[in-house]
């Protein structure tokens, strides 16, 4: 009983926090995105969830275009037009560092209460031809320093993801639940082979069934997400393919169960296939995705999250969400198993 309540509480928390907590401030784009050395440019910063017009106290809003830790350009004047648009005036330096003919600069805006936000590779600064002379002192006059952090509970702003980052609490846990359910299904298949009790078989089937349900949910939520971030719902990503194959395995499991006239024999052979198929699922879900390129986060399809993919505020929602969805999955499977038991009893099969 307690775990059903836990499941509901955790899921309510994950849904409410997942949808209501705001994103951190970010820079969507800047205009213009190309400039020449030596000229004076007015650059508009278009922010997301920013508060440029909010009074900033003694410390003003500061804006940089920076190349690396060493070289940065600070805006001479900063004028907020409203909360999301900021106009910054830059005097571009006379030459570029390291004798280059063009550099890609990152945009950085720092607000004393809303925190710092960054747009990588925001502006291309060109120089007609590489110069030999000493580097313009403007590059090192105002280094990036004393940045502020946004206070309060908020999710990271990611340039391609935007608000869809919230799908992390719904799409990703599906895979955890799927794996837990399939593992439970195999566990009960093993128990069935050791001691043929109808209940073990019903449990194995119910866990596999709910596992398929979560697999389909994960696939759908992933396709909606992919439509926003990768441009189309299905891009033959190795993980999408492997998931489809994993689901095929379990569809085959149910067809095998159904193709015996003797239910005891069907249960036994289905249990054998379940164990065999689960063993071949491990290379499918853990080894193969590492061997092929993937669009998923993590180095070339590494099935795990990278250390930079989650921050602490996301962890505070992500881990409870996994636990909540897992408990819900087992709850559904439990109900499914009990319903099947009642049906079997009514038909006199038990």
């Amino acid at each position: 009983m307690w775990w059903k309540i836990t499941s509901v509480v955790l899921l309510l928390y994950a849904i409410i926090a997942g949808f209501l907590v705001p994103l951190k401030s970010g820079i969507e784009r800047i205009e213009p995105s190309v400039a020449q050395t030596g000229e004076q440019v007015q650059i508009r910063f278009f922010g997301y969830n920013t508060f440029f017009a909010r009074p900033s106290g003694e410390t003003p809003i500061r804006v940089w275009l920076y190349y690396n830790d060493q070289y940065a350009l600070m805006a001479q004047a900063v004028r907020p037009l409203n909360d999301t648009i900021l106009e910054a005036t830059f005097q571009m330096p006379a030459n570029l560092p390291e004798g280059k003919t063009f550099v890609l600069l990152n945009a950085l805006a720092d607000h004393p209460t809303a925190g710092a936000s960054l747009l990588p590779i925001a502006l291309t600064l060109r120089q007609a031809r590489a110069s030999e002379g000493p580097l313009d002192p403007a590059w090192t006059a105002h280094p990036v320093e004393k940045l502020h952090l946004q206070k309060g509970f908020s999710f990271p702003y990611q340039n391609i993801l935007y608000e869809t980052i919230r799908n992390t609490y719904f799409h990703v846990p599906m895979w955890f639940v799927l794996l837990f359910l399939f593992a439970a299904s195999v566990w009960y298949s093993v128990r069935y082979l050791r001691r043929p009790e109808a209940d073990f078989d019903r449990r194995a089937a119910a866990y596999a069934e709910v596992g398929i349900l979560f697999g389909l949910l994960g696939l759908t939520s992933g396709m909606v997400w992919a439509n926003y971030t990768w441009g189309k719902p299905w891009s033959n990503d190795i993980k999408q393919l492997m998931t489809a194959v994993a689901l095929l395995i379990y569809f085959a499991y149910f067809i095998l169960r159904g193709s015996f006239s003797d239910p005891e024999k069907g249960a036994r052979l289905a249990a054998v296939y379940n164990i065999f198929a689960f063993a071949s699922l491990i290379p499918l879900l853990y080894i193969l995705p590492r061997m092929f390129d993937s669009l998923h986060p993590g180095a070339t399809g590494n099935p795990a999250f990278g250390t930079q993919d989650l921050d602490n505020t996301m962890r505070a929602v992500f881990y409870p969400a996994i636990l909540g969805w897992t408990l819900l999955g087992f709850w559904i499977a439990d109900l499914r198993m009990r319903l099947q038991r009642l049906k079997d009893k009514a038909l006199g099969l038990d």
């Binding site: 994993a246 499918l284 193969l288």
Partner: peptide, 30 residues
């Protein structure tokens, strides 16, 4: 192995294909 399982079922010919394709797919890709 899969044909051993399927041989016990009532119609085994199609079963072998649907049971074994997903299982050998990782092997086939590699």
């Amino acid at each position: 192995f899969i044909s051993a399982i399927a041989s016990k079922a009532d119609q085994s010919a199609t079963l072998v294909a649907i049971l074994s394709f997903p299982v050998v797919l990782p092997v086939l890709l590699t």
